[in-house]
Simulated assay, not measured.
Amino acid sequence: MELENNSNFNQIKLKETLQTQLSELEMLQSMFYNPGEIRVDDLVALKEITDFVNGDTAIIPPFLDITINLMIENTKFELCINLSHEYPEVEPDIYVRNHKMNRNQHAKVNKDLTDYIIQLERNEPCIFSAISWLQDNANNYIEPESETVPTKVEENEDLVRYWIYSHHIYSKSKRREILDLAHTLKITGFCMPGKPGIICIEGAAKDCNEWWQAIKSMNWKRIFCKISEECKEDKDLFLKFDNFEEKVFQNSSIKCNHMDMGELFKFLEDHKCGYVFKDLFGVEAKTSSSI
């Protein structure tokens, strides 16, 4: 009976937070009503959230992803927002993009925006406050880039491989940035979204370090490099992946955000990386989905 009561309480609490999110979205849509200013990235997810709040379904809905396009002094800024079920009791996942900013400028503006959001009162919607902060400060981060001569990658460049562990990776904007930056820097590896989130990057040390500095500056609940490997022998044998891609190992549970660890282990084994599984998760690997 106690478990049932807790379950009922959690459902009631979840409905409250999701209702707050829907109310905030409605407010934002009334402010940004011009075509292209605001977009719900997944309309099916929005309907599932609405149905859950209205009591039409008991299936836990996915997270809400919103994109807001702001024109600030004739410059377009894209604000990518992911709201977990706990928002507004926890900070929203927000990432700013702008085509005029380089990677360092992106990292700086997103870190400062995250620091600002953390200081705000919790349990209160804060997306409008984040928008106001960006409108007041955005152009301070856009500076003319000095012309630089592209540097050639030296043949004796050190190679590294990083295994990165995140509490979760859900945000579509983060997942896109992880992929885009890896492709830009010609890094290989993979990203497994869900809970937990696992990322492997490998390549030239300076490129991997640049990628890692940019990605970890985003707003994360928890993310860290758990394993770092350096090439000490044949460089042709060190690299395990041909490109960088997102890999989803979905288990059979409906609406489950957890990945099938048996499939992940098989994927690692196929790329001769099965040895890292125990260090990543602290358990011996199994080839079934019962991990």
Rank of each mutant, 00 (worst) to 15 (best):
residue 1 M to Q: 10
residue 4 E to S: 07
residue 9 F to P: 04
residue 12 I to S: 14
residue 15 K to Q: 15
residue 19 Q to D: 12
residue 41 D to W: 08
residue 42 D to C: 07
residue 45 A to P: 12
residue 48 E to K: 15
residue 49 I to E: 07
residue 51 D to E: 11
residue 52 F to R: 03
residue 52 F to Y: 15
residue 55 G to A: 13
residue 59 I to G: 00
residue 61 P to M: 03
residue 66 I to D: 00
residue 75 T to G: 02
residue 75 T to D: 02
residue 92 P to L: 03
residue 106 H to A: 03
residue 112 D to T: 01
residue 114 T to Y: 08
residue 116 Y to S: 10
residue 121 E to V: 11
residue 132 S to G: 03
residue 136 D to W: 06
residue 140 N to G: 05
residue 143 E to I: 09
residue 143 E to G: 06
residue 156 N to T: 15
residue 157 E to N: 12
residue 159 L to P: 11
residue 160 V to S: 01
residue 162 Y to A: 00
residue 174 K to R: 05
residue 182 A to S: 15
residue 187 I to V: 07
residue 195 K to A: 13
residue 196 P to L: 05
residue 196 P to E: 05
residue 204 A to M: 08
residue 207 D to R: 11
residue 216 K to A: 09
residue 218 M to H: 05
residue 220 W to D: 02
residue 221 K to E: 14
residue 226 K to L: 02
residue 229 E to W: 01
residue 230 E to S: 10
residue 234 D to R: 11
residue 236 D to I: 06
residue 239 L to K: 12
residue 241 F to H: 12
residue 241 F to E: 04
residue 245 E to P: 04
residue 256 C to W: 07
residue 261 M to E: 07
residue 262 G to F: 02
residue 272 K to Y: 12
residue 272 K to G: 09
residue 274 G to Q: 05
residue 278 K to L: 08
residue 282 G to F: 06
residue 282 G to R: 10
residue 282 G to W: 12
residue 286 K to N: 10
